[in-house]
């Protein structure tokens, strides 16, 4: 079918395809954009983030690297410093350990250390999240770790539309942007997926602003502040609880750095009850940050004590009952909301 036969708006694609479309558009627009990472070439990225790019742009602009993350992420930084716009993939965020110096001491600090004289316009994209028994070294989210470090913008799309719009914004941004996509939200054929991982996305280019949260569902009783795959779970729960007469508002943060505190505060001001759902570790992270934002603004906004649901400070275990026991599943989200309403 050609594009003229299908109205653009009716076209439905996966999050993975939306990411690669965003990259492709910018590669066509700007010869400085190129892609590198492990298995991003003919394979199309282990989680589909570079689907079809190799066929269109070839091995000069879509580069398979050795398993040398310090080397190729550092090379991305160097190329960015010289005016290119690399999109570099770290296959799983869990592998940050082998390349963290380049990320935090170089990618994140060069602009500041240079007194604003050097830019690092680079996108580092990486897969996050668990739920399919990939165990402790392949299931983490870790966005809180990166958001804690000054100098890196952090975006975390939850659906195909935002995935494309945020990718284009990230590539155009003059700062390093860490783009974290959840494996379970990619719409992969080989993993259980929420229907929300496939959605209508315009074919043409558009942007989603970095630093702007979205109200994914309006409600008046309770606010769920969340991100990434947990947005999909929270929307499912909201639909389910509507039949029990509980009216849930879901705020999809979309960006952690910068954090859209205004949208969060406006929602909490309306509902007076908040649950933060985070697939990252509980302590010293996003959930605590949102609690701080609310209490610094006006603790009196809350009619019920602040609630959070996150991974209870243990590594992600392998066996299904163990993993499901620590992840913020729909059941746990629903239970936490009901308690807030009790």
């Amino acid at each position: 079918m050609t594009a003229t036969e299908t109205p653009a708006a009716a076209r439905r694609i996966t999050t993975a395809k939306a990411m690669s479309e965003g990259i492709a558009l910018e590669m066509r627009n700007d010869p400085n954009v190129f892609v590198m990472g492990e298995d991003v070439g003919a394979y199309g990225g282990i989680f589909g983030s570079t689907t079809d790019l190799f066929d269109e742009f070839g091995s000069e602009r879509v580069i398979d690297t050795p398993i040398s993350e310090t080397g190729f992420i550092g090379a991305g930084i160097g190329a960015a410093v010289e005016g290119m716009r690399p999109v570099v993939e770290l296959m799983f965020i869990d592998f940050y350990g082998v390349c963290m110096d380049q990320i935090t001491n170089h990618m994140a600090k060069i602009h500041y250390e240079s007194g604003g004289n050097v830019n690092v316009p680079m996108v580092l994209m990486s897969a996050v999240g668990g739920g399919y028994s990939d165990a402790a070294q392949h299931s983490q989210c870790l966005w809180g770790t990166f958001a804690h470090l000054p100098g890196i913008k952090v975006v975390v799309p939850s659906n195909p539309y935002d995935a494309k719009g945020l990718m284009i914004s990230a590539i155009r941004d003059d700062n390093p942007v860490l783009y974290l996509f959840h494996k379970g939200g990619q719409g992969l054929v080989w993993m259980e997926k929420n229907p929300r991982s496939i959605a209508e996305v315009p074919e043409e280019e558009f942007t989603v602003p970095i630093g702007k949260a979205a109200v994914a569902r309006e409600g008046r009783d309770v606010t769920i502040v969340t991100l990434s795959l947990s947005v999909q779970h929270s929307l499912d729960v909201a639909e389910q609880l509507a039949s029990e007469g509980i009216n849930v508002e879901v705020v999809d943060l979309r960006s952690l750095v910068p954090l859209d505190t205004e949208t969060v505060l406006a929602s909490v001001a309306k509902t007076g009850r908040v649950l933060v759902v985070d697939e990252d570790y509980r302590s010293f992270g996003l959930t605590g940050e949102i609690a701080a934002v609310i209490s610094e603004h006006d603790p009196g906004m809350l009619t019920k004590p602040f609630r959070r649901l996150a991974v209870p400070d243990v590594p992600i275990p392998y066996a299904r009952p163990l993993e499901q026991g620590v992840l913020p599943t729909r059941d746990k989200i629903a239970a936490a909301v009901r308690e807030l309403m009790a």
């Binding site: 165990a135 070294q137 392949h138 392998y318 009952p321």
Partner: peptide, 15 residues
Amino acid sequence: GRLTGLSHGKGGHMH
């Protein structure tokens, strides 16, 4: 992923 496993189900095949 069983309790009688080397790591009581915490590790899995890569650990």
